[in-house]
């Protein structure tokens, strides 16, 4: 990271945490989340730097941990070493909803299975923390995965490198926006940790070339923008 050069040493996050990503949550373009997993398995859920809230210079109108009339993440309480009483979350459990001044609403999700330890009440009084320091003081929530699931909970997430790939491909396609394109990606034979490694990435204009049926077996995924 650029910080490393200035300080000559890795930052707190680089020293203790592994970064994991989940992109386009619930199919919504660029709604990327970042999960910082500490070596002791605790996960800190944050916005990825590519999240629309951070990209478009938006201002925050409101943040709410009240995810339904019956459930508020703010009321989460844990006690004792075993953190009794904390809400148990699945990967797609909503953590909070953030509304920007232009009226757009974003839902932030848990991304990992585990017990909710705390949410960040500071961002309610100082929403700018979320925009200025999204990966530290502007964190969303802290989750403790089950001990036996501490390795498996990140299986469906992207590594930093994979995330950077996704981001650069997005950039490559930016100029092609407003058109319908077929993108075919060819997988490697092996799925590593539940994530495919892509050999090739072809962006095809549908009218120019039709995808042959025979190609479907090796070209496993079709996306369009």
């Amino acid at each position: 990271m650029e910080d490393t050069e200035i300080r000559g040493a890795p930052s707190v996050i680089d020293r203790y945490f592994t970064k994991w990503y989940k992109t386009d949550l619930k199919g919504k373009p660029c709604e990327d989340h970042c999960v910082l997993q500490h070596s002791n398995r605790i996960c800190v859920i944050t916005l990825a730097e590519t999240h629309p809230l951070l990209q478009k210079g938006k201002a925050i109108k409101s943040i709410s941990y009240q995810i339904s009339s019956a459930c508020s993440r703010l009321e989460n309480k844990v006690s004792g070493k075993s953190k009794r009483g904390g809400q148990f979350l699945t990967e797609l459990a909503p953590l909070c909803r953030i509304t920007s001044t232009d009226g757009e609403e974003f839902t932030i999700f848990s991304c990992v299975r585990g017990r909710l330890l705390e949410v960040n009440a500071d961002i309610l009084t100082r929403p700018n923390l979320l925009l200025e320091k999204p990966s530290t003081e502007g964190y969303i929530a802290i989750i403790l995965p089950k001990f036996e699931e501490s390795k498996s909970i990140t299986e469906g997430l992207l590594t930093r490198t994979e995330y950077e790939d996704v981001v650069s491909k997005r950039a490559a396609m930016k100029g092609l926006r407003n058109h319908y394109w077929y993108i075919t990606m060819q997988c490697t034979d092996a799925w590593e940790g539940g994530r495919a490694k892509w050999h090739t990435c072809n962006i095809l204009e549908p009218k120019k070339k039709k995808v042959q049926k025979g190609e479907l077996s090796t070209r496993r995924q079709f996306l369009y923008l």
Partner: peptide, 28 residues
Amino acid sequence: PLRVLHRRPLAVRQRVIHTMSAQYRDSH
């Protein structure tokens, strides 16, 4: 602290820093 939170209860503890003394090294 997050680094010990997996094995200790979550709590807020009040602590006192009695004194500090800083010695300059370089610009960072």
